[in-house]
Amino acid sequence: MKDVFASAKLGPVTLRNRVIKAATFEGRTPDALVTDDLIEYHRAPAAGGVGMTTVAYCAVTPGGRTDRHQIWMRPQAVPGLKRLIDAVHAEGAAVSAQLGHAGPVANAASNRAPALAPGKLFSPLGMRTTRRPDTAEIRAVVRAHAEAARLAEAAGFDAVELHFGHNYLVSSFFSPLLNRRRDQYGGSLAGRARLAREIAQAVREEVGDRLAVTAKLNMDDGIAGGLRIEESLQIGRWLEDDGALDALELTVGSSLFNPMYYFHGDAPRFEFARVFRPPLRWGLQLGGRAFLREYPYREAYLLDLARQFRHELTMPLILLGGITNKQTMDLAMDEGFEFVAMARALLRQPDLLLHMRRDPATRSLCTHCNKCMPTIFERTNCVLTAAAPATSARCRS
Rank of each mutant, 00 (worst) to 15 (best):
A6V: 04
L10F: 04
R16P: 10
R16D: 03
A23I: 04
T24Y: 07
D31R: 14
V34G: 10
V34H: 09
E40H: 12
A47K: 15
V55D: 09
Y57M: 14
A59E: 05
V60P: 11
T61R: 02
G64F: 04
G64A: 07
R68V: 05
H69W: 11
A77T: 03
L81P: 11
E91Q: 15
E91P: 10
A93G: 11
Q98K: 12
L99W: 03
G100W: 00
H101C: 13
P104A: 08
V105M: 06
N107M: 02
N111S: 11
N111T: 10
A115E: 04
R128C: 13
T130Q: 06
R132C: 14
T135H: 06
A136W: 00
E147H: 13
A152V: 08
A155C: 10
D158N: 13
D158W: 00
F164S: 06
L169N: 09
S171I: 01
P176F: 00
R181M: 07
D183H: 01
Q184L: 13
S188E: 05
A193Y: 02
L195C: 12
R197C: 12
E198W: 01
A200G: 09
A202C: 08
V207R: 10
D209F: 01
D209W: 00
D209V: 00
L211S: 07
V213I: 05
T214V: 14
M219E: 09
I223A: 05
I223T: 15
A224K: 14
G225E: 05
I229K: 06
I229F: 04
S232R: 07
Q234G: 03
Q234E: 15
G236N: 09
D241V: 07
D242R: 14
L245C: 06
D246G: 07
L248R: 10
T251W: 01
Y262R: 12
F263V: 11
D266H: 15
R274G: 02
F276C: 07
R277E: 12
L284H: 06
Y295W: 08
P296F: 00
L303I: 04
L303H: 09
A306M: 06
F309K: 09
R310C: 08
H311V: 10
P316V: 00
L317A: 10
I318W: 06
L319A: 13
L320K: 05
T324L: 02
Q327M: 04
G336V: 07
F337A: 12
F337S: 10
F339E: 09
V340T: 11
A341G: 15
L346N: 10
L352P: 11
R358P: 00
R358H: 12
R363T: 10
C369I: 02
T375M: 13
I376E: 12
T380I: 01
T385D: 03
A390K: 14
S392H: 13
C395K: 12
C395G: 13
